[in-house]
């Protein structure tokens, strides 16, 4: 088998899986495809480092993961995204003595049924895009990409305390936004 055929086989066997993996992290078709391309190219160049102590797919995924984190880090640095920590939104949510301004109401909905509802997915997406960008990045890496604290801190250039603050603010905003636009009863 020639080398070219091997590289093709990687793409054919793992390309779609890698693409889905990337897409679930970056939510952008074109960027996800670019990430897969970069990962496969890097894997091909470094194929001598593949020791076979994990499966090929696991190895490719770990390279892809690095590429994605790297991309996010560069993006945040280049565009100097540094919102959030100064402007504290908790005054929207709490009185000076720390009481809720808008009362949370208990949601009884089934999470899976929500997700299968396309209208809900649109509302969720809208609520996410309303978050300040760094908050949203951190939140998505945590909740959608399931990354650990260290990786997120490195990618987004924050301390772990900042990460907890950003996660808290994101959760407060999302909770309020979803309650207002979905769980509050008005499904528009």
């Amino acid at each position: 088998m020639t080398e070219a055929m091997n590289a093709d086989a990687w793409l054919n066997e793992h390309g779609d899986y890698l693409y889905r993996f990337a897409l679930s992290k970056v939510h952008d078709d074109e960027l996800a495809a670019d990430m897969v391309q970069e990962a496969l190219l890097a894997a091909w160049r470094g194929k001598s480092r593949f020791k076979g102590d994990s499966t090929l797919r696991t190895w490719l995924v770990s390279i892809l993961k690095h590429k994605i984190i790297d991309h996010i880090r560069k993006d945040i640095r280049q565009r100097k995204i540094s919102d959030a920590l100064e402007n504290d939104p908790s005054s929207h949510f709490f009185s000076e003595s720390g009481e809720w301004q808008t009362n949370p109401r208990t949601w009884h909905d089934n999470p899976e049924q929500c997700c299968d509802d396309l209208k809900f997915r649109l509302v969720l997406k809208e609520c996410l895009t309303r978050l300040p960008e760094k908050q949203r990045r951190v939140f998505e890496l945590r909740e959608l990409a399931d990354e650990d604290t260290d990786t997120i801190c490195k990618a987004c250039d924050v301390t772990s305390t900042n990460l907890h603050v950003l996660m808290y603010r994101a959760r407060l905003s999302l909770q309020a936004c979803l309650q207002k636009h979905w769980f509050g009863g008005a499904s528009t």
């Binding site: 679930s24 899976e112 909740e143």
Partner: peptide, 25 residues
């Protein structure tokens, strides 16, 4: 309760995205 529901929603989305049938164009 609500942020627990949100957490479940995101982990459900994560798993359905990764095991879905979306393909590279």
């Amino acid at each position: 309760n609500n942020i627990g529901v949100m957490h479940d929603i995101f982990s459900y989305i994560r798993h359905s995205d990764e095991s879905g049938s979306t393909r590279l164009s």
